[in-house]
Every structure is written in structure tokens, then in C-alpha cells.
Amino acid sequence: MLMSGRGREAKIRYMAGTFRLLSDGDHVRCAETGVTIPLDELRYWSVERQEPYIDAAASLAAEKRAKRRA
């Protein structure tokens, strides 16, 4: 199967329990670490901040960062 978004970063709308692809791509970058996350491995994100995270630790760090700024 040919993927038109291969090698490109996707644009995504993050929702509760799911996400919607806004533009073709096969990965996103963790908002906390900058690590590339293949879309099929994306499990953590913030609906409020519209940010993806590589893992639970990065998600927690982003949450703490957001609370310090508030």
C-alpha cells in the first residue's frame, strides 16, 4: 500500500480517546522531548493543549509545565 504521507509529519486534531488526521503524514513529534512518534504508536496527547507525547512520563512533564505557567 502506498502512503502519500510517508516521511512527513502529520497535522492532527486531538480529541478525547481519538484523533483526526488533518494532513497526510506518518508521524508527529513529541511536544515535550521532540522525539518522532509513528502514528501507529501514538497513545498520549493533550486535548486541551493539542500536543502529542511519546509516553506517560512526557505527558506528565508537560502537565506539570502547563500548571507552572498557569
Results as ranks from 00 to 15, higher is better:
19 F>P: 00
60 L>I: 13
39 L>V: 03
63 E>T: 15
10 A>Y: 02
22 L>S: 02
2 L>D: 10
17 G>E: 06
32 E>Y: 09
10 A>M: 04
8 R>T: 14
13 R>C: 11
3 M>N: 12
17 G>L: 12
20 R>T: 11
19 F>T: 03
54 I>H: 07
52 P>L: 08
59 S>K: 12
64 K>R: 14
19 F>Y: 12
62 A>K: 08
64 K>L: 15
58 A>I: 04
61 A>S: 09
12 I>R: 02
54 I>Y: 04
64 K>W: 06
11 K>A: 15
29 R>T: 15
21 L>I: 14
44 Y>A: 09
36 T>H: 05
69 R>H: 09
9 E>V: 06
11 K>C: 06
69 R>Q: 14
66 A>Q: 08
51 E>Y: 00
34 G>A: 05
35 V>T: 11
42 L>V: 09
57 A>E: 13
43 R>K: 13
50 Q>S: 10
38 P>I: 05
68 R>F: 07
10 A>W: 00
4 S>L: 12
14 Y>A: 04
18 T>W: 05
65 R>A: 14
49 R>E: 11
6 R>T: 11
32 E>D: 08
3 M>H: 15
24 D>C: 14
68 R>H: 08
52 P>R: 04
43 R>I: 03
13 R>K: 14
37 I>Q: 03
37 I>G: 02
2 L>A: 12
57 A>P: 00
52 P>E: 06
61 A>R: 12
18 T>M: 10
34 G>V: 01
57 A>Y: 04
61 A>P: 00
44 Y>I: 11
35 V>C: 02
6 R>H: 10
41 E>S: 13
6 R>P: 00
27 H>N: 06
6 R>M: 12
63 E>F: 12
13 R>V: 09
26 D>Y: 05
48 E>C: 06
35 V>D: 03
34 G>C: 01
54 I>N: 07
36 T>G: 02
3 M>D: 13
48 E>S: 10
17 G>T: 10
67 K>P: 00
51 E>G: 02
1 M>A: 13
58 A>W: 01
31 A>C: 01
62 A>D: 06
25 G>V: 07
7 G>T: 09
38 P>K: 08
37 I>P: 00
54 I>D: 11
6 R>E: 14
34 G>W: 02
10 A>V: 08
10 A>F: 04
57 A>L: 07
37 I>K: 06
49 R>S: 08
42 L>M: 09
38 P>C: 05
2 L>M: 05
35 V>A: 10
23 S>C: 03
1 M>C: 11
17 G>N: 03
16 A>G: 09
8 R>C: 09
36 T>V: 15
22 L>P: 00
33 T>H: 04
6 R>A: 15
23 S>H: 07
42 L>W: 08
62 A>G: 10
62 A>T: 06
5 G>V: 03
34 G>Y: 03
58 A>C: 09
59 S>L: 13
19 F>E: 04
6 R>F: 11
32 E>L: 01
46 S>N: 01
33 T>A: 08
36 T>A: 15
23 S>G: 01
35 V>E: 10
26 D>I: 03
36 T>M: 11
67 K>F: 10
7 G>Y: 03
14 Y>L: 09
22 L>Q: 10
49 R>W: 03
70 A>E: 13
